[in-house]
């Protein structure tokens, strides 16, 4: 069923049950997010994407990335109330990740209060514990990392903080991390992540780096095929060459 909602005064059409953030983005509205990733399901944990919805006399703050639109509503993405709460949310996130330049920048841009009475976590911390990396690892990798401990001791780690035997070094976790908090070191031959070093595999033809040996092998087991040894471009070329002769010269 189609619905008409108003976002900052503009009428937008959406399907019933669609998440508000998606509708807003499609219609050209910018709502800041941290824990949302287009390829991974919504988590709704960073609370930065909050918006105000007005329905009749009532107004409420909702988390737009996990708020399904089910009736005609009026949405305000940048009301005074939203600005104040978003600022506070960012200020609290900064206490979690004081070393993150992204969070610091957002705090400045959204006028976050200082909160001098709250103690920040370790000075070098850049992780906001959104868990996007854990989700990416579970879906794209092998589930080698998870949120360990709880409360103020919570952190993302491998079991016993030891190099994980199941990690394939695909670095999906680092790629989705909104604050760039996962350290990956890479040169022409090797990639180091989560305390382990992996050998990189290069394309047989052009030498472009494919991925770690383990990640390529893992992808092969998923496809139930022999491990890939060409990069996407060279593979395309190879297929094209095979077809060149098919339809005559």
């Amino acid at each position: 069923m189609s619905l008409n909602i108003s976002i900052d005064g503009k009428t937008c059409t959406c399907e019933s049950g669609e998440f508000l953030l998606e509708v807003a983005r499609r219609n050209g509205f910018y709502i800041p997010t941290l824990c949302a990733h287009e390829s991974l399901s919504e988590q709704g944990c960073c609370r930065v994407c909050i918006v105000e919805i007005v329905s009749g006399e009532r107004s409420q703050i909702v988390v737009s990335c996990v708020y399904p639109v089910e009736r005609a509503i009026e949405v305000l993405t940048n009301s005074e109330k939203v600005k104040a709460l978003r600022g506070m949310t960012l200020a609290l996130l900064q206490k979690l990740a004081p070393a993150s330049s992204l969070i610091a920048g957002m705090c400045k841009a959204y006028g976050a209060p200082e909160l001098p009475r709250l103690e920040a976590r370790a000075d070098d911390d850049t992780c906001i514990l959104c868990g996007l990396c854990v989700k990416a690892c579970a879906q794209l990798g092998t589930g080698a990392i998870a949120a360990v401990n709880r409360g103020i001791e919570k952190k993302i780690a491998t079991p016993y903080d030891q190099p994980s035997a199941t990690c394939i070094g695909c670095a999906s976790c680092a790629q989705v991390c909104p604050t760039g908090s996962i350290v990956v070191k890479q040169d022409a031959q090797e990639r180091s992540i989560w305390g382990r070093t992996f050998t990189l595999l290069a394309c047989d033809r052009c030498g472009v780096i494919l991925d770690t040996t383990e990640a390529v092998a893992y992808a092969a087991t998923l496809r139930d095929a022999p491990p890939e040894h060409l990069c996407p471009d060279c593979r395309k070329q190879q297929v094209a060459q095979a077809f060149v002769g098919v339809y005559g010269k």
């Binding site: 690892c137 579970a138 092998t142 589930g143 080698a144 990392i145 998870a146 949120a147 360990v148 401990n149 709880r150 491998t158 079991p159 016993y160 994980s164 199941t166």
Partner: peptide, 13 residues
């Protein structure tokens, strides 16, 4: 079949 890291997370929770 649950990954070791997820079980470890459960145990530390």
């Amino acid at each position: 079949g649950t990954p070791v890291a997820h079980l470890y997370a459960l145990a530390t929770f």
